[in-house]
Nucleic acid binder design. Structure first.
Lengths: 180, 180
DNA sequence: GCGATCACTTGCATTTTACAAGTAATTTAG
DNA sequence: CTAAATTACTTGTAAAATGCAAGTGATCGC
């Protein structure tokens, strides 16, 4: 379990702008990746976040988990039956970041070379509300089935070769996932 | 005008995930504030960004403008008629960050104390596509009328006193703004 | 010319991040 | 029971990013 939050993490706000305040809470290169892992990959534990692909340093991970918990975006609880394990999960405030993540995914896939298959991205773009509803359902029902796999394969995108025919990364989507 | 982009700004990607790639481009506490200023406040110049309210340091501002330009999110051009002034504007790639900013605004206003009037936020939430269309129109027609004022007043929000009756900050919205 | 304006750059102290290693509290294997 | 393994971190230290104050150089208005 994480230690109590030091006061220095509660800095004075720069302004009253909602965008600015949001950025103070998760405006860095790591926080939203943890939220992503919780939201669409079904990750729950420290070790899973560490092995998530982007290579976050272990002290930074601990720091970000603390900050996200302090912001009320995630919760940490010791697993019943194994006191070594801490299970993290999103709060309602956390799951409500889904639209932000969703738009970032669409933007990145549209303008940068990524490993996300074009068809998948296009399907998500066409079915925005259904995808967001499914993300929310999984959270509500604590369904840990990954909605999206880790995108590890070779990058593709607007300037690259045309979209891949298969998902990479070894994980399959559930029947109730974005391909439904 | 900004200097050419050093190679060290083009780091190797952490992963192929679109969210991760997006975060590498604008995942910090300042970049999206500049985009916000360009998008909804009609700011164009270095000095306007500096006086934007959050107090960005001048070297950081220069660095972020360089990075955003390198990422193809903004353009810099010397003003015709006054060679001192540099006018920045969003590219199409940049204006397409509008949904990301929009969702961050809604989330921040919903869960944190901000200076954004509740009625305004609720109106924006109810008229998502119209607001985004208006943002896009202003960009396309190079209409510099601010869509939203700087939110400088005392914070209000879900846990605070009920919404303000008037906009603060001295700037008024245009007739074609979000109040239409 | 001359002061003012604008868009930066530079130097330096502080903070944050990255990387490697270590530690404490369990749980599991034998 | 003890020993090894697992999990979730912390610690130390170097590198990088940030924040702050001051300075620079190219215009521009007069």
């Amino acid at each position: 379990m994480v230690s109590p939050v030091p006061d220095r993490l509660k800095r004075k706000r720069r302004s009253g702008c909602p965008v600015s305040i949001s950025l103070e809470l998760f405006g860095d290169r790591w926080s939203l990746l943890i939220v992503r892992d919780l939201m669409v990959r079904g990750y729950r534990t420290y070790k899973e976040f560490q092995k998530s692909g982007e290579g976050i340093a272990t002290n930074i991970l601990a720091n970000r988990l603390r900050r996200l918990a302090a912001a009320g975006i995630i919760l940490a609880e010791t697993e019943a039956g194994d006191a070594r394990r801490v299970n993290y999960r999103l709060t309602e405030k956390g799951i409500d970041l889904a639209p932000v993540l969703f738009e970032m995914l669409l933007w990145g896939a549209r303008y940068e070379k990524t490993s996300a298959p074009c068809e998948l991205v296009e399907h998500m773009a066409r079915n925005r509300s259904e995808v967001l509803a499914e993300v929310c359902r999984r959270w509500r029902e604590r369904d840990p089935t990954p909605l999206l796999p880790p995108f590890r394969g070779p990058a593709s995108g607007p300037a690259g070769p045309s979209g891949q025919k298969e998902l990479r990364g070894g994980k399959r989507q559930s029947r109730r996932g974005v391909t439904s």
